[in-house]
Amino acid sequence: MAVREILQYPDARLKQVSVPVTGFDAALRLLMCDLEDSMRAGAGSVGIAAPQIGVLQRVVIVDVSAKAGIRQHGCLRLVNPEIVSRTGEARGREGCMSVPDYTGNVLRAQQLRLRAQDGDGIWREWDCEGYEARAVQHELDHLDGLLFLDRVVSPRHDLFRRKVYR
């Protein structure tokens, strides 16, 4: 287990699409441990994706359990995660360990159904909402080479919400 260096944009690896995991072996378990250690070493981070440590495989960790009073599922260790369905839309502020010193508002689905394998390849599903759903979407974006910067909305967007309600 080790805390790995977090890549920062403009590192080109952050803009690449990661490949599905096919081997559910000791190497995968080590990657999952390293990811979790690296996430917990980053102050206040509630998630991490493998490309953030330079591994272009579809593995993420999401853990919003430190936040009080929200519905959440504890530490989610997700291999080959997919969003099966999504509903609603909410605006929230995001930042990223890979994009220091910038935060912005991003529109995300309010609720989603998530499907992923665990470290042994067993598929599971979760229904996530709110802050946890936002964290899941932020991390899964990393697997497709997307940063929150690709989705950030104008600060003045808040004053003109007609589009959101249409």
Binding site: V46, A49, G92, R93, E94, G95, T103, R134, H142, F148
Partner: peptide
Amino acid sequence: VRIASLDTLIG
């Protein structure tokens, strides 16, 4: 007047 906490998610 609507007041909301801004809780920046870091991922």
